[in-house]
């Protein structure tokens, strides 16, 4: 039987420029049936949707525009989880390499380069490696996850803290490790590459959100 959005547990949006395989494999390790698709109907009929991302906001938004997926993503009513750049694309706009890229405008906020205002002179960018979270809200996405758990981050740009922030991270400055607005949520780190803690978050999204 061919897997389609009706039989799959979730659909990963094929943005063309993202590291999609590692997310698909992580969900498959948890026992889920996963479909990767750029097809409008498949994405709309999915029960859960992932928006992955690696690379630059400009490149990724071009790719999403070329596939005519902007309106599709904006109209989704089911739970959608953006990962890393995918989360950043859910905000209003992103200023990367001095280029202001309009994003999907699903979650309030914008994306800017990480600044070292509160850091010592040793701050290096990209922020790369395992970091803990702070001020974790009691959102179902973070059920069972504490400030002792480490998650894998790789990024140079970040979403400042705002009313949609549901978890924070501290590196040079405090920024949004996770954002949520209605059915749209996102994480700046890579749960698919964050060991057991990351698997817990993915499973929370699949089971509790």
């Amino acid at each position: 039987m061919t897997l389609d959005a009706q039989t799959a547990d979730a659909v990963i949006i094929d943005t063309g420029c993202a590291n999609i395989s590692s997310l698909k494999f992580a969900l498959q390790r948890l026992g889920y049936q996963i479909l990767v698709s750029a097809d409008k109907a498949q994405i709309q009929s999915a029960s859960k949707v992932f928006l992955p991302g690696v690379g630059s906001a400009e490149f990724a938004m071009n790719s999403i525009n070329e596939r005519n997926l902007v309106g599709v993503v904006q109209s989704l009513k089911q739970p959608v989880l953006g990962i890393c750049l995918g989360m950043q694309l859910m905000t209003e706009h992103s200023i990367e390499n001095d280029i202001d890229t309009p994003c999907l405008n699903l979650i309030p906020g914008e994306v800017k380069r990480i600044t070292a205002e509160n850091a010592d002179h040793n701050l290096r960018l990209p922020h790369m490696g395992w970091n803990t979270l702070e001020n974790i809200s009691d959102s179902p996405l973070f059920s069972g996850i504490t400030g002792e758990d480490y998650f894998y981050f790789v990024h140079t740009y970040c979403a400042p803290i705002n009313s949609a922030t549901i978890a924070q991270c501290d590196y040079g400055q405090r920024f949004s490790a996770s954002l949520q607005n209605n059915n749209f949520s996102g994480v700046q780190f890579h749960p698919e590459r964050s060991g057991k803690a990351g698997a817990k978050l993915l499973s929370n999204f699949m089971e509790l959100c």
């Binding site: 494999f25 992580a26 498959q28 390790r29 790789v154 698919e192 590459r193 964050s194 057991k196």
Partner: peptide, 11 residues
């Protein structure tokens, strides 16, 4: 590379 990506959960 793909076989590794399937089994490990670290970067």
């Amino acid at each position: 590379v793909e076989r590794i990506a399937q089994v490990i959960d670290i970067p």
